[in-house]
């Protein structure tokens, strides 16, 4: 048991870090927007936090709020620029932002260490990681039942109807971006602490695609779906490697395809849960 724990503790750690990225992606998705900008927020939070930790020797507890805040600020700026675009174009713009992020990471050597990368000689106990994730979960849970959560759902389901109900779409989506930025920035520094080394490749398109996939896989209509998706997506390659070592990634892709086709609303689907409950309950 102790061995099993030791063997898979880093997998659990990465699963939790990925859960932050997935939640960040979910935050914008829940307000009806597809955005890959989480990667950019994570890069800012990660590099800035790592620099503070290395050069000013700040403890991780102080660094994390700074990372989250910087992510949120950047997200606010991104929201100001991007919310003028309609949905398809915003997805494309956020993808462009990810590509630019890598170029900046390669060239802004003072912040990122450039091609040499950046060593982060700090580590984080897993229970701290779990505790932070728990706090974020509570925040998402409270949010989903709040006025904001309901308004966001309305904007996502039908923006025109939401507008006639007097829901300020632009403001709801800006808030969604800020939440996404804060959680993404936090995820960025947590990934840095898990890897203990950052390079321009650390925050790139792979994170964007796997996290979107994780959210949709887990279920994009409930915040818990993001976490389930992230865990499945982190564990799947490890499991598949044991089963089909040569075609592990191919099997990964096929799993994703099958889930999307047969479970299009993801593993955690509040509507299906409600329907099941309704069916079980005595209706007459």
């Amino acid at each position: 048991m102790a061995d099993f724990w030791a063997a898979y503790q880093s997998t659990l750690g990465f699963a939790m870090v990925n859960a932050f990225f997935a939640l960040s992606t979910y935050a914008v998705l829940s307000a009806g927007m597809l955005s890959f900008a989480t990667v950019t927020f994570a890069a800012l939070g990660g590099f800035l936090g790592a620099q503070l930790a290395v050069h000013l020797a700040l403890p991780p507890v102080l660094v994390m709020p700074v990372s989250a805040l910087s992510g949120a600020l950047l997200a606010y700026v991104v929201a100001l620029l991007f919310l003028r675009l309609d949905s398809h174009w915003m997805a494309l713009a956020s993808l462009a932002l990810v590509l630019i992020t890598r170029v900046v990471a390669l060239n802004a050597t003072a912040l990122t260490g450039g091609v040499n990368g950046l060593s982060v000689p700090l580590s984080l106990p897993l229970w701290v990681l779990a505790a932070i994730l728990a706090v974020i979960c509570v925040v998402f849970w409270r949010l989903s039942a709040s006025w904001y959560g309901i308004a966001a759902r309305a904007v996502r389901e039908d923006a025109a109807v939401a507008a006639t109900l007097g829901i300020p779409q632009r403001r709801i989506q800006t808030i969604a971006f800020i939440i996404s930025g804060a959680v993404g920035g936090l995820g960025g520094i947590l990934l840095a602490l898990m890897l203990q080394f950052l390079s321009p490749e650390t925050y790139f398109i792979d994170i964007a695609f796997t996290m979107i996939a994780a959210v949709v896989l887990g279920g994009s209509y409930h915040w818990a779906g993001a976490i389930v998706g992230a865990v499945v997506f982190t564990a799947l390659p490890v499991l598949l490697q044991a089963v089909v070592p040569d075609f592990e990634k191919v099997a990964n892709g096929i799993c994703l395809l099958l889930i999307m086709i047969f479970l299009p609303r993801g593993l955690i689907d509040p509507r299906a849960l409600r329907l099941r409950r309704a069916r079980k309950a005595p209706s007459r």
Partner: peptide
Amino acid sequence: QPLRRRGAGMLGALITSIAAWIVLDNL
């Protein structure tokens, strides 16, 4: 096609295209 039949939005197709990308790229 399976998503189209169901009238799912652009997001679903993006995910399945990522899946197809992973599979075809690795093959």
